[in-house]
Each structure stands twice: as C-alpha cells, then as structure tokens.
Measured scan of single mutants.
Amino acid sequence: MPEGSASLQLAVGDRVVYPNQGVCRVSAIDVKEVAGQKLTFVTMRREEDGAVVMVPEGKVLAIGVRKVASAE
C-alpha cells in the first residue's frame, strides 16, 4: 500500500463487517500476482454460509469493511 494511505490493520482471525455481505472472518492475507503486478489481498470467509470474498488490501476501507465492535 502506498505510504501515507489510510488502511485498516487486519490480521488473520479478525472478525469484520463487510457491507451487504455480513460478518466475515479474515482467513488469509496473501500477495498474489495479477496482470504482472504483485498485490496484497485480504481473504475473508462469511460466517453465515462460508462464502469466500477476496479484496485488494488497498480497497478495504473504500468498500467500507470495518472491525466488529467489541462488547466493551
């Protein structure tokens, strides 16, 4: 991610809310080559049905992904 860009610090195992998809758990953060460029992807699995969603790390905030609020 370019320096100075806002990002959401995620780790494998974090629970997040993905708008219009529901609650997901981060299952992987991997670098993949797409069209000759190396990009970091956040892979999330929906808790409702296990569907897998992959989002480029740089788009996580723009999409509206946020961490699940704690009970505290």
Rank of each mutant, 00 (worst) to 15 (best):
V53N: 03
S27Y: 11
G22S: 04
P2K: 11
E3Y: 03
V42K: 00
K67H: 08
Q21D: 03
N20Y: 07
V65H: 05
E3G: 12
S27W: 13
D49K: 01
Q9Y: 09
G64Y: 07
V52P: 03
S5K: 12
Q21L: 15
V23W: 06
A35Y: 09
Q21S: 08
A62E: 15
P56E: 15
G4T: 12
R46N: 06
V26R: 00
V17H: 13
K38W: 11
V31G: 01
S27I: 15
M54R: 10
L39H: 15
A35M: 11
M1K: 13
V52S: 12
G22D: 04
R45E: 14
A51K: 12
V65N: 03
V53P: 01
G22L: 04
Q37S: 08
R15Y: 15
Q37T: 10
G64I: 11
I29G: 00
G58W: 15
A69Q: 11
E47N: 02
S70F: 10
E48N: 08
G64W: 06
T40Q: 05
P56T: 11
P19N: 08
D49C: 02
L61H: 14
E33Y: 12
E47L: 08
V12M: 02
V53I: 15
M44W: 01
V23R: 04
R45S: 08
V52E: 12
A11L: 08
R66Q: 14
A11F: 08
I63E: 14
A6S: 12
Q9G: 10
A11D: 05
V42Y: 10
Y18K: 04
D49R: 01
G13W: 01
R15L: 15
A28V: 04
M44P: 00
D14F: 01
D30E: 14
D30S: 13
V60G: 06
G58I: 10
S5M: 13
A51S: 09
D30A: 09
Y18D: 03
I29S: 00
G36D: 03
V23L: 11
G13E: 01
A11W: 05
C24D: 00
K38R: 09
V42D: 00
E48V: 13
V42R: 00
A71N: 12
V42E: 00
V12H: 00
E33A: 05
R66N: 08
T43N: 02
K67C: 09
Q9N: 11
G64C: 09
V23T: 07
R66C: 08
D14L: 04
K67P: 07
V17E: 09
A51G: 10
G58M: 09
